[in-house]
Amino acid sequence: MALLQLENVHTYYGHIHALKGISLEVNQGEIVTLIGTNGAGKSTTLRTISGMARPRTGSVKLEGKPIHNLPPHQITRLGVGHVPEGRRIFPRLTVRENLEMGGFTVARGDVQRRIDSTFVLFPRIKERLEQLGGTLSGGEQQMLAMARGLVLEPRILLLDEPSMGLAPVLVEAIFEIIRTLHQKGTTILLVEQNARMALQVADRGYILQSGRIVMEDSAKALQSSEMVRKAYLGEE
């Protein structure tokens, strides 16, 4: 059974029909990437999974149990970690407090240990612990957002545009971290505009166009697909 399964999900924003029947699945230990242009429905898909948007029809199942009627905080408690687009660091909480919020649902004794364990991947964060979140640079904020998501030790991590607005060196670093997470066995659903990088780390991928999945395959196959190369990888 797939860890996460979406079946024929329709999501609306007011009158806007954002997702028009999305079906996808993510298996234990996989990195799956969603690729598409702006407005294709990538972020909406993640928001629907984590409960911030509610599907009008269709189902979202975690290990076979429907979760689409639960409020966001309960979905998080089931182990769905969502690192939102634009990082959404709490600007007036310190870095330490931001991390603690990531472990809000975790038993008190475990939080500190888990925070410490994120420092292996994000050593820069450790130096900034007492600083306010709002004072970090963009790259540091992205690192913090991911570290905050990992404190939950999620069963599946939803990453929304982790490389957006970052310098190339930092983009490399972020993807390196994603690769490491993958090796450790973390299940990731990755939304990226940088399709090339995304397909390099992912096992499988889905191509979204205006709220519909138009193609799904292994990352390798997608990389070599004519359509994908033209439309998303910028190759002639």
Partner: peptide, 17 residues
């Protein structure tokens, strides 16, 4: 801290559980 998080960003706070 949870209250402070909610006061700064409700949706993200919900994502934290």
């Amino acid at each position: 801290k949870g209250i402070r998080a909610v006061s700064q960003d409700q949706t993200t706070a919900a994502l934290m559980g």
